[in-house]
Design a protein around this nucleic acid. Structure first.
Length: 436
DNA sequence: CCTGGAGTTGTCCTA
DNA sequence: TTAGGACAACTCCAG
């Protein structure tokens, strides 16, 4: 036992700038030991070359170096069940206080509850902070206290509250970074120690210029346009950038559409927080009566991008190759899976979860349920995207399609796996009989 | 409690 | 060629 310390536990907030919980820890009177825990409960479900794990790993090593070079400190990196790691930490150090930023996913809520219980038993304080959103939990609700289920009134209330108060205050001065615990050797791990290999797929940096934000409304629907969208998702997911710094840029623009997308993120986060059952159940229960066809072979074709519909296939191939798919195309492939193929939205949700670098449970579940028609504020079931019409509207010159499906004219390119008209009519029949 | 207006991203058919 | 209505009601939300 040496002297008393505080711990800051990094999770999905991998940065030193504008980090609410971190600054709270550093402003306490105790030296701060920063830690990260690779949790097998999460890792063991991922492929060995998962690019997200590589990204997190690289970012942690960068942070560790920075702590060593600039602050004479370090970052302790562990692999194991969080409860076991904390058990070890309280034996090795006189831990007085553990600080962390809140995570609202069901697994994380359980995990943190358990950790809180363990720490409390040991007379250690556990403090959590709102960091990854502007408004969390039930901060934006109707006047009767119920959560919003429709986006537009939610957005109005969100903006009203945002505009009537200061929500972008820097949480601390960065001077406090010198309050890290002085230490030269803290536990570290290699990627192979945690059972992973370096991925060749990289998470790209994001570009968020005022020019992009002001043009966003006009460019965001065209997958062939370079920098038509921000590519911010993974950075918000892992917290390599703070939401406040992004919102600050968004509000300085005349055009509200980019800002609106940030509010959608929080809309789905509060839906997941209020309705964690929507991870597995249709938000509208009737939609769980739909008789999905769930044909495995057809699912395989969809996954590989071999449906015979060029824009659908381009999207899936982009996803498989890069871990990214343009938003417009995400809607189309989701609609195609649920409606043309009548495959359960949960199957598609799971595949996106496996592949997307910017995978975020709340948005993924929310948007898949939107596509299936079963979610909050969802697309009406009779609204079925026509992949050819959409290609004509949003990829008129075929640039995007050609990039990802160059063999479209070859005999090797598959025939359309379903006829649009027939699949559409089948979908309407099946949905109608489930919902009536 | 009642009421009226509105609800991310479409498509198809008809006149 | 193009514009407008049907598609299906239903629930949500604010006043």
């Amino acid at each position: 036992m040496s002297k008393a310390i505080a711990i800051f536990w990094f999770r999905r907030d991998l940065r030193f700038q504008d980090n609410v919980g971190l600054f709270a820890a550093l402003e306490s009177s105790l030296p701060v030991l920063p830690i990260f825990i690779f949790d097998p409960e999460i890792l063991d479900k991922l492929p060995k070359k998962d690019p997200r794990v590589s990204f997190i790993y690289d970012q942690l090593q960068r942070m560790r170096s920075q702590l060593q070079e600039d602050y004479g400190s370090s970052l302790a990196i562990y692999h194991g069940r969080p409860k076991d790691i904390f058990h070890k930490l309280v034996q090795e150090h006189e831990v007085k206080h553990v600080y962390t930023n809140r995570d609202y996913e069901p697994y994380a809520l359980n995990r943190d509850n358990e950790i809180k219980g363990f720490l409390t038993e040991n007379n250690i304080n556990f403090s959590t902070y709102k960091d990854q959103v502007i408004f969390e939990k039930d901060e934006i609700v109707k006047s009767d206290g119920d959560p919003y289920l429709v986006y537009t009134p939610y957005k109005n209330k969100w903006l009203f509250k945002f505009n009537n108060d200061e929500h972008l205050q820097p949480s601390a001065s960065e001077d406090s970074l010198k309050n890290f615990m002085q230490h030269s050797r803290l536990p570290n791990l290699s990627l192979s120690d945690i059972g992973f290999e370096v991925s060749t797929v990289k998470i790209p940096d994001y570009t968020l210029t005022s020019n992009l934000i002001s043009k966003y409304e006009d460019t965001r629907n065209y997958p062939a346009i370079k920098n038509g969208t921000s590519r911010l998702g993974p950075h918000l997911r892992f917290g390599t950038v703070s939401i406040r710094s992004i919102v600050k840029k968004a509000i300085s623009s005349e055009n509200e559409v980019f800002m609106s997308e940030l509010i959608w993120r929080e809309f789905f986060m509060q839906i997941l927080w209020h309705y964690p059952n929507t991870v597995t159940d249709a938000f509208k229960p009737k939609y769980d009566r739909i008789e999905w066809r769930n044909n495995e072979k057809e699912f395989e074709k969809w996954k590989k991008g071999e449906t015979g519909y060029a824009l659908i296939d381009a999207g899936m191939r982009q996803l498989n190759a890069t871990g990214y798919m343009h938003n417009r195309v995400r809607m189309l492939v989701a609609s195609f899976l649920c409606k043309h193929l009548l495959i359960d939205w949960r199957w598609g949700e799971a595949y996106f979860a496996e592949k997307l670098l910017d995978y975020e449970m709340s948005s993924n579940v929310g948007n898949w349920q939107w596509a299936a028609g079963s979610g909050v504020d969802a697309a009406p079931y009779f609204r079925i995207f026509n992949p050819m019409t959409q290609a004509d509207k949003f990829d008129k010159e075929g640039k995007y399609t050609e990039k990802w499906v160059p063999n479209i004219a070859d005999p090797s390119y598959p025939d359309k796996m379903v006829d649009h008209k027939e699949a559409r009519e089948r979908c309407l029949r099946v949905y109608k009989s489930a919902l009536s």
